[in-house]
Design a protein around this nucleic acid. Structure first.
Length: 430
RNA sequence: GACCCUGUCGUCUAGCCUGGUCCAGGACAAGAGCUUUUCAAGCUCUCGACACGGGUUCAAAUCCCGUCAGGGUCACCA
């Protein structure tokens, strides 16, 4: 049975690269009906923190990658010690004393050719003669990465190691350890790295790197996963939007690209919008609720759920990020709206008192304040005044929303309601 | 510096294994237009790439070699 693992180190949040590695491991496990194992590599007691463990577990769940087993390296130190002693006994490792008298266990590297058949890259040959002896157990008693990694992968019967490109050069060292330990060598698959827009590895300087940052910005997990998937794999058939279940069906590790990909926020925005369009407004409302309360758009307890739902439907097809709703729909929640100065200059510098007054009067006569009737009032008015619709539409939009862009004018007026519409238009009537 | 990986539109990619159907297809971005109401939605169109140089071949994005470029690793970090 296929067993893969994702092994993050809790010295920071789960970042984009880690999320992508987790995705491909999870996907491979699912497509092979295998197990997805999570291992927390917390051997560095100084830099590892519980809050990062919590954050990583939370982000993985958020992305939808549930694990079948969970291990912590910090709980397995006796196992590393035991295997180190075994290598010491067989003469494949030796002890080195530091000037302070502390002992470290060092692995003896023999000059040889190491062949690795990478599932993504094909055959790679290394010259172990270029690799120096490797520390197994540091003088503080903790294991090194390469050693703990091999012991754990061997003891938990990992069959496929799918990880970032940056581990290629660790591979020959680990292969030698498997051999020394007398364990079967697993399959390796090295994923290309994700690069930032300015080249080089994706880093905080080139934008947000933590998965949780994307959650906070209003990206949907399905969209992020879809984007990450496209970064080094293609479902074929010119498809861009693909959900996890379809991906599981189509995925083949051999089709993963070898080339490093640049992270492009614009495309992520587009994909996120594709998912936002199709999303259930009820679920979007749940996501948005904390933000709406935080911005004092709605009171904490009672609010008109149907009304907010209506607003979400007005915007959801246009939003790149769910959180943009806060800025884009602000005029529905704030009594005093902020008017874009350029828009005011362009559309409200002429005196439109007469037209606005007539429009307000028309709205007041409506017995049924519906989107259709609002539009009817408007159309009647412009034909009566013999002006083009857009001559009045743009000024109305700016006066009511403060913006030149937004949802359709009539549905927007419907949701604003007669009173607020009147109040905002009256300001422009002399 | 040594070793390793990679090189198709600005970006993500299809095609490469099994040469001809590719004067290279799609998507994002950008630009133009349409939408008797905006665009940040939708629709249409445009721009735009096989890193370079040699081979092999009737034929090369596809195979081989070299060059160049980008990236990664060389820790008692993971």
């Amino acid at each position: 049975m296929v067993r893969v693992r994702f092994a993050p180190s809790p010295t920071g949040n789960l970042h984009i690269g880690g999320g992508r590695t987790a995705l491909f491991n999870w996907l491979f496990a699912k497509s092979q009906k295998g197990k997805f194992i999570l291992r927390i590599e917390d051997t560095d007691q100084l830099r590892s923190r519980q809050e990062f463990v919590d954050e990583i577990l939370f982000s993985l769940k958020w992305l939808g990658f549930q694990w079948d087993e969970l291990y912590y390296q910090s709980q397995r130190f006796v196992r590393y010690r035991m295997h180190a002693d075994k290598l010491l006994k067989s003469g494949q490792a030796y002890i080195e004393k530091s000037p302070e008298g502390k002992e470290a266990v060092i692995f003896k590297v023999n000059a040889q050719k190491i062949m690795v058949n990478d599932l993504i890259r094909g055959a790679i040959e290394f010259d172990a003669g270029l690799i120096k002896d490797q520390v197994l157990i540091k003088s503080d008693g903790t294991p090194t990465y390469n050693f703990a990694c091999v012991v754990d992968d061997a003891e938990t019967n990992i069959t496929h190691i799918i990880r970032g490109d940056d581990h290629i050069s660790n591979t020959p060292k680990q292969v030698m350890l498997y051999q020394a330990l007398g364990c079967a060598i697993p399959n390796f698959a090295h994923l290309p790295l994700i690069m930032g827009m300015e080249g080089g590895r994706l880093s905080k300087r080139t934008g947000a790197t933590a998965i949780s940052d994307y959650r906070k910005m209003g990206y949907l997990p399905e969209a992020l996963v879809n984007y990450l998937l496209l970064l080094s794999w293609s479902p074929g058939g010119n498809r861009e939007i693909i959900n996890k279940d379809e991906a599981i069906e189509l995925f083949d590790i051999k089709n993963v690209n070898k080339t490093a990909a640049t992270f492009d926020l614009k495309k992520l925005d587009w994909i996120n919008n594709q998912y936002l369009k199709k999303a259930d407004p009820q679920e979007l409302l749940e996501e948005l609720l904390p933000l709406l309360i935080e911005n004092k758009y709605i009171p904490e307890k009672e609010f008109d759920r149907e009304y907010i739902l209506g607003l979400i439907k007005l915007f959801q097809a246009r939003l790149p990020r769910l959180n943009d709703f806060i800025d884009w729909a602000d005029f529905f929640f704030e009594e005093e709206i902020k008017i874009d100065p350029a828009a005011q200059e362009k559309f409200l510098s002429n005196d439109l008192s007469r037209e606005l007054k007539l429009f307000v009067t028309g709205l007041e006569t409506l017995s049924n304040f519906s989107t259709e009737n609002i539009e009817k009032v408007f159309r009647d008015l412009v034909s009566r005044l013999n002006i083009e619709a857009k001559v009045l539409i743009h000024p109305l939009r700016v006066a009511l929303t403060g913006k030149t862009i937004g949802p359709g004018l009539f549905e927007l007026i419907y949701f604003l309601g007669l009173e607020r519409t009147k109040k905002r238009l009256l300001k422009w009537i002399k």
